[in-house]
Design a protein around this nucleic acid. Structure first.
Length: 430
RNA sequence: CGGGGAUUGGCGCAGUUGGCUAGCGCGCCGCGUUUGGGACGCGGAGGCCGGAGGUUCGAGUCCUCUAUCCCCGACCA
């Protein structure tokens, strides 16, 4: 994109009404716009990050055999009454409204009940199972207190997947495969080293659910982490008995703050029984459908990454989710500008996302914005080098400067795609 | 929901014990000089001080109510 066409302008000062680092940086760099507490719009650069995260998640979910769909945000009361979860006493984060007729409706904070209603009409036979579906959806949760920028909002983007299985074993097999897929997701978006499978409350259905917790001081959860086992226990279920049950040793654990970036649940047959969702098995017997559900907070991930990868100059996006790979700047006369135009066209034609800073401002301002926006590679086309066919390329990660010709530059930029884990190690945090 | 803090041009802030046309920096517009780390000069535009009510000759400054935002706690499939 040409920066002159961007609706966003960077800010030198963060708004005073934001305390969270993720919100300060994302607003200053023009990635998000605050509408109200706990509700942020995604501006072009921020949306690109969201889409990049989605792409990684989508690839991993598709690889599991799940298919994408999109459900409604407006939800009928009936399905939730059926499960008992329409009650505000049980679920205290409901947003509700009503139709002109007076009929009550809810705004989806989860889609477990509606998807079960859907399954009820679509899944009839063991031949229809197992099956899994997922979506990227805006969820609404009427939190008493929104906080921490995009990390805990009242409206946010979530990937939720639902798997229907025929038995506990079948469910468990999918559950384990999904756990691995989740770990691949976090790895690919740069959080792999700091994200841990964590035992957490299973609610009323199973003893445990599994959370994926990213270690960060900005998180609101406390976990007890065994780094060598790469496993943790959430404080909410932490006790000597639980540790014994899980075979974890107390003296191997460290107590750390973490942000929940995923949560997966095993409902077993309970939800099916509760909501009357049955299938016919091979012998024609009625059996309850086994349900498991799998969530990843997409917009929260953007916040966690912003919290984790930044320095005094601004954001430092992992390569796989950066809104662009290259921040292109021309310095000097028309020769430099036409050189930059040409490189912009070449890279764009190759599918490399480029932010071309074609604004009529001084170089220093462009350098600052390149840093603030956290674009992995800064490429400068200047009079002094273009005559020899060289471009200057600088890494946002380590500030290393190189002069490369066109083909080497392309090689470098394209080679760094899909190496998010490298990024994570190099920045040396945690 | 309990406690604490805040609200003055787009952003960050200052506004003495109530006093005259509400200031500053950034940003924005115009002209000129600049051009490898957020340049400089000159000239402009833009706010009725979150909202409502009150006290007063006079309120951004005092009082009451209210809205919103931030933080701590509680809550958190």
């Amino acid at each position: 994109m040409r920066l002159s066409q961007n609706i966003t302008k960077t800010l030198k000062n963060a708004p005073a009404d934001e305390q969270a680092i993720n919100a300060k940086l994302l607003i200053r760099a023009g990635f998000i716009h605050k509408e109200m507490a706990g509700a942020y719009s995604y501006l072009p650069l921020g949306l690109q990050v969201i889409e990049n995260i989605k792409t990684v998640v989508r690839e991993e979910m598709n690889a599991l055999g799940a298919s994408e769909l999109l459900m409604t945000s407006l939800q009928a009361k009936d399905s939730w009454v059926l499960s008992g979860r329409w009650s505000d006493d049980l679920v205290d984060i409901w947003f509700k409204s009503q139709l002109k007729t007076g009929a009550e409706i809810g705004f989806g904070w989860s889609h477990e009940e509606p998807i079960m209603m859907m399954a009820k009409s679509l899944v009839k036979s063991y031949r229809d199972l197992p099956i899994s579906v997922y979506q990227f959806q805006t969820k609404f949760r009427n939190e008493l207190r929104a906080k921490s920028g995009v990390m805990r909002g009242r409206e946010f983007i979530m990937k939720d997947m639902y798997a229907f299985s025929r038995s506990a074993d079948e469910l468990s097999e999918f559950y384990e495969r999904t756990k691995d897929a989740y770990l691949r997701v976090y790895d690919r978006i740069g959080l792999g080293d700091n994200t841990f499978v964590t035992f957490a409350s299973g609610g009323s259905f199973t003893q445990f659910s599994h959370e994926f917790q990213t270690v960060t001081d900005s998180g609101e959860d406390t976990i007890y982490l065994d780094r060598s086992k790469r496993l943790a226990v959430n404080e909410e279920v932490y006790s000597d008995e639980i540790l014994a049950q899980l075979g974890m040793k107390k003296d191997h654990l460290e107590k750390v703050k973490a942000a929940e970036v995923g949560n997966i649940f095993n409902f077993g047959p309970i939800k099916g029984e509760q909501m009357d969702v049955y299938f016919s098995d091979q012998s024609g017997q009625r059996q309850p459908v086994y349900l498991s559900s799998y969530g990843i907070g997409i917009s929260r991930l953007m916040g966690v990454i912003a919290e984790h990868f930044n320095d005094q100059n601004g954001l430092v996006w992992p390569i796989n989710i950066a809104p662009a790979k290259v921040y292109l700047i021309a310095i000097g006369d028309s020769k430099a500008v036409s050189g930059a135009d040409k490189l912009y066209n070449i890279l764009t034609a190759r599918g490399v996302a480029v932010i071309y800073d074609d604004r009529d401002v001084r170089p220093g301002e462009k350098f600052s914005d390149a840093d603030l926006m956290g674009i992995p590679w800064r490429v400068v086309v200047s009079e002094q080098f273009i005559e020899n066919g060289l471009y200057e390329i600088k890494s946002r990660l380590n500030n290393k400067l190189q002069q490369l010709n066109e083909s080497n530059l392309i090689k470098l930029v394209e080679a760094t795609t899909a190496k998010s884990n490298l990024h994570n190690k190099e920045i040396g945090k945690d």
